[in-house]
């Protein structure tokens, strides 16, 4: 009786995992498919799309833009988010509730609203759209996540450690540098990696804020209308997927260790 339920639960789990992996597996299969059309039936095995990647200059430029954007915006978001987390966790001040509510707001606002609001703002002040404006959007999106991840870590370790450091003669900023930040480091790195992957994959906000230099998701979206370019797009995506999964597994292991 119990045995049967056990295997039913296993069957359910396996079915769900198949459901989750099938679409991704499909893309990877097509990246090796010897046909310019991304349709069934499969034609044969080829590595030519991987070879064609080197020639796809626009796409490589978009990839480079996304990498730069991801690194820069996550660095800023992690820096500011960590400061905000320090303030929110370690201090009691008037307006703390308002501060926390406002900084968490981007979590509950649909990206299309945020994208549109920033687009109108930049237009109002005649700011040219560029990678920079996209970056601003990504920073606003990522600050709440950084605050959550780093804040959880700060709540998790007692402030007596910091008091001990100050008791031993460290200044406040010295304590921050030598005790607080090192202890929170796994969470800070995890927050950075999470921000990076979010930024790297973000489309709905970027779409409204991007200028002439496009990010990878924007490029991919623009290519979806041209079936003949799909195989190369899919091939790059297969590589990127593998990379980002590896990166996030690393971030997750850091978070769990911390």
């Amino acid at each position: 009786m119990r045995r049967r339920f056990f295997s039913a639960a296993w069957a359910y789990y396996i079915l769900l995992v198949i459901f989750l992996y099938l679409p991704i597996g499909l893309l990877i299969v097509f990246s090796f498919n010897d046909s310019p059309m991304v349709v069934f039936p499969l034609k044969g095995f080829t590595l030519k799309w991987y070879g064609a990647l080197a020639q796809a200059r626009e796409m490589l430029a978009a990839l480079r833009n996304s990498l730069i954007l991801g690194l820069a915006s996550s660095a800023v978001a992690t820096f500011l988010g960590t400061m905000a987390a320090l303030a929110a966790v370690r201090y009691r001040f008037p307006g703390r509730g308002v501060f926390m509510a406002v900084s968490a707001m981007p979590l509950v606002i649909p990206y299309v609203v945020l994208g549109v609001a920033l687009l109108i703002l930049f237009s109002t002040f005649n700011i040219e759209r560029s990678l920079f404006t996209v970056g601003i959007g990504h920073i606003v999106i990522n600050i709440p996540y950084v605050m959550l991840i780093v804040g959880a870590r700060l709540v998790g370790f007692p402030s007596s450690l910091e008091e001990a450091a100050m008791d031993l003669g460290a200044t406040y900023w010295g304590t921050l540098r030598r005790v607080t930040i090192p202890i929170a480091m796994p969470a800070i790195v995890a927050a950075f990696l999470t921000s990076f992957t979010t930024s790297f994959d973000e489309f709905a906000v970027s779409f409204f804020l991007t200028g002439t230099e496009v990010t990878l998701p924007i490029y991919v979206y623009s290519q979806l209308r041209f079936p003949s370019r799909l195989p190369v797009v899919i091939t790059l995506s297969a590589i990127v997927m593998t990379g980002s999964v590896a990166l996030l597994l690393f971030a997750e292991s850091l978070r769990r260790k911390g």
Binding site: L16, V17, L20, Y21, P23, I24, L26, L27, T197, D201, F203, P217, V220, Y221, L224, I234, S237, V240, M241, S244, V245, L248, L249, E252
Partner: peptide, 15 residues
């Protein structure tokens, strides 16, 4: 179960 969620959103929809 979580790994697929970390892959590109656009491409999952495309799939």
């Amino acid at each position: 179960v979580l790994v697929p969620a970390w892959t590109s959103f656009l491409l999952r929809i495309l799939a």
